[in-house]
Design a protein around this nucleic acid. Structure first.
Length: 645
RNA sequence: GCCGCCAUAGCUCAGCUGGUAGAGCACCUGAUUUGUAAUCAGGGGGUCGGGGGUUCGAGUCCCUCUGGCGGCACCA
């Protein structure tokens, strides 16, 4: 008997039945075989040392490929688990998957681990690699496997197998020699030695068993693993570089904002940060005006009775900042703008001719977020949404959603942002409404997304309890994901708060509401763009657009004139007349990431010119003042006000 | 909120096993009038996050609170 393998290059060769992928690789070249970590047959993973059971399209997985790294990292997780169990007897293993840059393993142990243990654990991991234990795959019956794990005290493993594996289905256990074994789908390397030593334990964290707060808290050890030492070093360098873009760090360095103990999750905006905010606010206002929105402003604090009517008192109470007055009223700061907007909608009689009604507000909301979730500007307790609610008929939903999605892409594009994906949050377990309603609502959202040229990623169960939503997900410098831009369908609130309109038939109807935001919140969006630009904002966003810096005091009066003319042209200008060398001034303003420095000395004063230097370049361009004004004001024009050329 | 780590001058950080705080930058003063990423000299500044304890003696050890960081959970 022989089997036939079809290689990626199209070649087809026969092998003896039972040949292993490793033998196949060795048959091609010895050096190739050294770099192979697994194989795929007809797209399915196959261990290198597992005899092939049939022919098909055959692919060798190299250790530095994306697939190969996955195999390595999976092995690293197993080696970590073995090391931990050897060093800390009594520790139970639970679950240890691969992540984007590495792996983690969740352990159950009474005593806490400390990061001080990492050195010891890494050392043991390296010993296991040196021991080069063969990794053996064995197929087990489900019941036997459960009994086995129970007998060695691995309760979590037994539970996992019991719930995940269908009765009668076989499972595979991979073991390192006769020392250690774990339930695993595979594939794995032939032996622990092939893992190499380009791995590192990174951090320690608590994690709930099965991600549920009600369950026991496990201890998670995160690690990273790479094909070789160089890749590992590169990765660590990348992390360091990313940290430099952190908006919390840049916010302080660039004097944009600060936060302090007495106001956790609350931002003190400094003049430069607030300038950035105002620039964004006028920008988004123009975009919304152009998109047919009307703007409103609603109260910051409202009576408890109001929140009872809206349902927030019942459903959202623990996130609300509640206060009492001396006259014993109970009030709450608004956590959302929607109920307020419904009040405006309700004043007077609305007709179907008024729909869709797009009501916007830069609304400041306060939410008592869990302390552990606070994160710089990304997650705060007081934030301003670029919020709006679109009141419309059901048959207008799809167009409104599609139009909104296009608007988001236009806006994000102006900041060079590309969403990593758009999530369609579908029906959650606890929900209102029939399955028919959800089928229809989810289909409407998906269709609208496709109309806007977007194929959404399904975020199973992430919808609101009353309807599905679409979220624009953007990554920050450290790779964390944040929602910037969202649109959410709502049939409930208008009904609850008694909003209606008169239809063509003369009867009253309930409008549908679309909750939507483009930035998400000003705070988060500013955090994102700080990181995205690494603080080096384009001219139109930069808090200080130009610094006029003198070389000698002889040029002071001319420098003042230059700055005044620039200000008159609408530029944000600072004047640096300090008694310092130009080099010093250039360095300082470059570090402050000011996009342009206009240097003036005796020569410029005489000829009415400036020497313009751009951030990131060393070239200076000598030009007349009017030329400089034209160039700078052109660049400082917000993208929505630029003429299409 | 939960788990782990951390907290020294405005910022970045040093201070070994307990012996009454130090650097660079920033700030202030003076000199220097400077041609594109740091001119020189001098000076001021910290009850070492708060509270408690151990000790003859605590920045250093222990407890506790507060806050920060990294995850988990929750979410714009």
């Amino acid at each position: 008997m022989s089997i036939s393998l079809k290689f990626p290059d199209g070649a087809e060769r026969s092998y003896e039945d039972g040949a292993t992928p490793l033998a196949v690789a060795e048959g091609i070249s010895k050096s190739l075989a050294k770099k192979v970590v697994a194989a795929k047959i007809d797209g399915a993973w196959w261990d290198l040392t597992r005899p092939l059971e049939g022919g098909g399209t055959f692919e060798l997985v190299m250790r530095d490929s994306a697939d190969g790294l996955e195999v390595l990292r999976h092995d690293a997780a197993h080696v970590l688990a073995q090391a931990v169990q050897e060093l800390f007897p009594g520790t139970q293993v639970t679950f240890g998957p691969v992540t984007e840059d590495g792996f983690y393993y969740d352990f159950a142990r009474e005593e806490p681990f400390s990061t001080d243990d990492f050195e010891k654990i890494e050392k043991r991991m390296k010993e296991i690699v040196d021991a080069d234990l063969p990794i053996i795959r064995k197929v087990w019956e489900k019941e036997a496997a459960i009994a086995h794990f129970k007998s060695i005290g691995e309760i979590y493993k037994a539970e996992t197998i019991d719930e995940v594996i269908k009765p009668g289905d076989p499972i595979t256990i991979y073991s390192h020699g006769d020392k250690w074994g774990d339930l695993c789908r595979g594939p794995h390397l032939p032996s622990t030695g092939s893992l190499g030593k380009a791995f590192k334990l990174m951090k320690l964290a608590g994690a709930y068993w099965r991600g549920d707060q009600k369950n026991a808290q496990l201890q998670r050890i995160y690690g990273t693993a790479w094909a070789d030492e160089k890749q590992l070093a590169d990765y660590l360098t990348r992390l360091e570089e990313a940290e430099k873009r952190d908006h919390r760090k840049l916010g302080r360095q660039m004097d944009l904002f600060h936060m302090q103990e007495e106001g956790r999750g609350m931002v003190f905006w400094h003049p430069k940060g607030w300038t950035l905010w105002r620039t964004l606010e006028s920008y988004i206002r123009r975009r919304l005006d152009a998109a047919g929105y009307v703007e409103v402003k609603t109260p910051q604090v409202l009576d408890r009775v109001f929140w009872e009517k809206s349902g927030h008192w019942d459903k959202y109470r623990e996130n609300m900042f509640v206060c009492e007055t001396v006259e014993e009223e109970t009030l709450s700061l608004k956590p959302m703008n929607c109920p307020g907007h419904v009040q405006i909608f309700k004043v007077g009689q609305k007709s179907y001719r008024d729909l869709p009604l797009r009501m916007a507000e830069c609304g400041a909301c306060h939410r008592y977020e869990p302390s552990g979730s606070l994160h710089g500007l990304m997650r705060v307790r007081a934030f301003t949404q670029d919020d709006a609610h679109i009141f419309c008929r059901e048959d207008q939903i799809e167009d409104e959603v599609a139009g909104f999605l296009q608007l988001v892409r236009l806006v994000h594009g102006d900041f060079g942002l590309v969403a990593t994906h758009i999530d369609l949050g579908t029906r959650p377990e606890k929900r209102a409404g029939s399955d028919e309603f959800w089928d229809k609502a989810e289909a409407m959202m998906a269709n609208a997304a496709r109309k806007a040229g977007i194929e959404p990623r399904i975020a199973e169960g992430d919808g609101a309890f009353y309807a599905p939503k679409l979220d624009f997900i953007v990554k920050d410098a450290i790779g964390r994901e944040w929602t910037c831009g969202t649109i959410q369908l709502d049939y409930v609130l208008p009904d609850r708060l008694g909003a209606d309109y008169v239809g063509e038939d003369g009867a009253k109807h309930k409008p549908v509401m679309l909750h939507r935001a483009i930035f998400g919140s000003f705070e988060r969006f500013i955090g994102i763009i700080i990181e995205n630009y690494a603080g080096a904002f384009p001219m139109w966003l930069a808090p200080v657009q130009v610094v006029v810096a003198t070389i000698t005091q002889d040029a002071d009066s001319y420098a003042k004139e230059v700055a005044a003319k620039m200000r008159a042209a609408g530029l944000r200008v600072e004047l640096d007349l300090r008694n310092e060398k130009v080099g010093y001034k250039v360095r300082e303003h470059s570090l402050a990431k000011v996009p342009a420095i206009a240097v003036v000395g005796r020569k410029e004063a005489e000829q009415g010119s400036v020497a313009l230097r751009r951030l990131g370049g060393e070239a200076q361009t000598l030009m007349s003042l009017p030329e400089a004004l034209a160039a700078l004001t052109g660049e400082a024009t917000p993208p929505d006000l630029r003429r299409a050329s």
